[in-house]
Design a protein around this nucleic acid. Structure first.
Lengths: 359, 359
DNA sequence: CAGGCATCTGAATCCTTGT
DNA sequence: GACAAGGATTCAGATGCCT
């Protein structure tokens, strides 16, 4: 029997073999991502981005990272009960290495969860898409093994909506973010408690033992304590351990609000860009729009969903402002020819139809 | 030179080696993820049919899939131009195998996109979270290689907001879904055209050659045709090929001019040396510039269009870097007095006026 | 005290061209 | 290919100051 609710000092690959096997109900692991950043990044305003360049995130190559991954996953699997489960979080830099090795080690993936960040860092140079999500893998110890899933808990708010594999949550910041006296982040990659709240509530029972082999500043322990689960952390760094211990000691026995569990329906957060009508084929590049219900100015739709009108190029709103001379909602101003009827139809009507289609 | 816009019959692993190397701009691949592992394992009630936990059995299956993946990825990489790129779509069943092998083959992941389905198939039994997303990987042919990304086009598509890595789109259904006379789906995993629209618009140029090694019912070809790109499909199944050909033939040839298909890119505009503003008489040697919109450091313009500031001499960019500490675009930093109005005006505005004049 | 405006920051594999 | 130089580039949310 493991003595729970404490932080063990050291590398999980050496600590884990000293623990009894088949004694842990859930592993939550936030391993190094192997980010490999090689230069400074500046925001457009000239400030520099605080990079994740910690020593613990440095690996020589993929082979070294794979070896590390295989070792800690193997060690975790040994201490897991047969009906225990494991969560790992990562990004494209590492998650595919982890996922493949996980499968090789006979873990059985139950779900992939995509954590959609409401407030990610933008791509400042405009050279890629904003990296706005991270990936969590939830896996049973082996194929066919039993596992814990509290369907009733996650559906308690609203049938269906909260059970999806996309979780929309802000990144960890504000008062929740642990900071040193000088304002510096204690840990460069602290996870939000809301994320762990969902994980722990949905896939463990009260009293279960939750192990975090990369404890960091102890988000897993904090939420476990809040939710009446036992926990065990392993962490190499003494400063992280101190911060985590202090944080967890200060946790009152209050619960986080239930609404932290609610996953907003993507249909609810839709702000449909005009471009979606093109992507859906409801309109095509080259089509002509008319300004106003009766004969008005004509505009040609371009492939990027901007309009071309009288030598100007801009969004439906920009061109509408131009023509109207004042603030204007392009959705109400522009009309297309309906392909089905040949009648003039407002692009707003087309948007409504798209909304219907997405249900 | 490959003859484009046609469907080649056969297995891409045998067809691809017959094509010339370094001839393709983009690969979009929707590979099968029919791991034997996933068949005949669970009864409808969730019990295990054949709970073989034979390590070798499993390994053999993953190994077979890995071998297949390595083969088609290697073959695709050969036909890719050095600055070409590759997209793959998959789910947690296969995407981690693909992602890891991709990296092993020295592809360089640029983004992971998570396609959030507005209307996924619910998990009726409530034993897991509803799988509401699929994953796309976008990778350059190698680390540090150039690649195509039309930042402004996708920004325009998204109402002037930078496009993120989470794409919220409905699954393919309705009129778009190809169906046989009996109403049966022609292809079980037909992808929505909206997905390909975003991929193709953002990461290819008009006229580029797009290869789809698992063509299926030809969504890639259909959208490529709509957007004025060339395409090449490889497909084993004759029924899929027939459906794809018919579908694509029904799409009218795009005759949009290049400028309607592409979005103007400020990075591609002709450079105007600062000295031109002096030559044009918009500024004069001896004039004073101010650093920043509000009162900042002063600099004197010299006859050779360099600036003199605090005993240093250099270009608008060099002096800006000096004052600002970090990379800096001098055009945005320096302000002059407008001779016409006496107001402070950005030298960038003056440059814009010059550009207008030169049209 | 409310509201407005400026500032700061977050797991980021973040430039392009000419010499 | 290395190097120097030009110059393009950001979103949401929290915090704090000022009026």
């Amino acid at each position: 029997m493991i003595s729970p609710n404490r932080i063990l000092a050291g590398d999980c690959r050496t600590i884990l073999p000293t623990l009894p096997e088949a004694s842990v109900d859930l592993v939550f692991a936030d391993p190094p991502y192997n980010l490999q950043l090689h230069q400074d990044l500046h925001r457009p305003n000239g400030t520099i981005v605080n990079a994740v360049d910690d020593a613990w995130d440095q690996f020589a190559d993929f082979a070294a990272y794979d070896k590390f991954t295989r070792e800690w996953l193997t060690a975790c699997r040994r201490v897991l009960k047969p009906d225990g489960a494991l969560w790992v979080i990562g990004t494209y830099h590492n998650i595919h290495r982890v996922g493949a090795i996980l499968q090789d080690l006979h873990f059985w993936i139950l779900n992939e969860i995509t954590w959609i960040k409401t407030n990610p860092m933008p791509n400042f140079r405009g050279v890629r898409f904003t990296n706005a999500h991270e990936t969590l893998l939830w896996a049973a110890r082996s194929r066919g093994a039993r596992y814990t899933f509290h369907h009733h808990a996650v559906k308690s708010l609203n049938e269906q909506l909260q059970m999806r594999s996309d979780w929309v949550l802000p990144v960890c910041g504000g008062k929740e973010r642990l900071r040193a006296n000088d304002g510096a982040k204690v840990h460069s990659t602290q996870k939000p408690e809301a994320l762990l709240y969902r994980v722990i509530l949905s896939t463990t029972n009260p009293g279960d033992l939750i192990l975090d082999p990369f404890f960091g500043t102890g988000t897993t322990g904090a939420v476990a304590k809040r939710l009446g689960r036992r926990w065990l952390g392993i962490e190499k760094d003494a400063a992280y351990r101190r911060a985590a211990q202090k944080r967890i000691d200060a946790i009152p026995e209050t619960r986080l609000p239930e609404e932290d569990l609610a996953t907003p329906d993507p249909r609810k957060r839709e702000r449909i860009p005009f471009g979606r009508l093109l992507e859906e084929g409801m309109l095509s590049a080259g089509d002509t729009l008319t300004f106003g219900e009766r004969d008005g100015a004509k505009a040609r739709i371009l492939a990027d969903a901007s309009l071309s009108c009288k030598g100007k190029r801009g969004s439906i709103h920009q061109i509408a402002r131009l023509l109207h001379g004042g603030p204007s909602n392009g959705w109400d101003r522009w009309f297309a020819l309906d392909r089905r009827t040949g009648e003039r139809i407002s692009i707003n009507r087309l948007r409504e139809e798209l909304r219907e289609k997405e249900k």
